[in-house]
């Protein structure tokens, strides 16, 4: 059974809300469709620095990309599986403007029996003008290894 975009979005939203650090950063799910998710980091005063004018998102981008890539895996497999990240690589191409929201479009482009492969683009205006590009891999757990209560919560009843 193919999941609808609405169902995928619901899963991503619940996945995001289940993570205290994501709630703290105020990340939002913009859209979700099979294999692809878009996440937004709204403009936030507490991430600004007035003293130095570079690297204001220091580290935040990494957290955001990790989360979006992980959410993309949710949109690529039918039953929710808690997949730990094996590795993540980010190339930073330009510096984000601190007064505009940041977006990450993450895609899980390949699903194999044991491993999931993702790529992600961080942007502010369009994906044609990337801030950063990232690739990562996730390990699929053994069948039945994901906590059943957590699985049921992420999958929801929609």
């Amino acid at each position: 059974m193919m999941l609808t975009d609405m169902q995928l979005r619901g899963r991503c939203q619940r996945f995001l809300e289940a993570q205290p650090h994501m709630r703290k950063l105020g990340l939002k799910v913009v859209s979700a469709c099979p294999g692809v998710v878009v996440i937004e980091l709204p403009v936030q005063a507490e991430l600004f620095s007035c003293d130095v004018n570079t690297y204001l998102h220091g580290g935040v981008l990494t957290t955001m990309v990790d989360h979006a890539s992980s959410a993309a895996t949710l949109c690529a497999v039918e039953d929710y599986e808690l997949c730990p990240t094996l590795d993540l690589r980010i190339d930073h191409m330009s510096r984000p403007a601190q007064d505009k929201p940041l977006f990450v479009e993450a895609e899980c482009y390949r699903v194999t029996r044991k491993v999931l492969f993702t790529r992600a683009t961080v942007y502010q205006l369009t994906t044609e003008q990337p801030i950063a590009y990232a690739i990562s891999t996730f390990m699929r757990p053994d069948p039945g290894a994901t906590d059943p209560a957590f699985k049921a919560m992420i999958e929801g009843d929609d």
């Binding site: 994501m22 957290t63 990790d66 993540l88």
Partner: peptide, 19 residues
């Protein structure tokens, strides 16, 4: 507690470790 990404284990958010 604000750095948790996996509430089941619980475990730190992978992105927080990387950052």
């Amino acid at each position: 507690p604000d750095n948790i990404g996996n509430p089941v284990l619980p475990a730190l958010h992978g992105g927080v470790i990387a950052s």
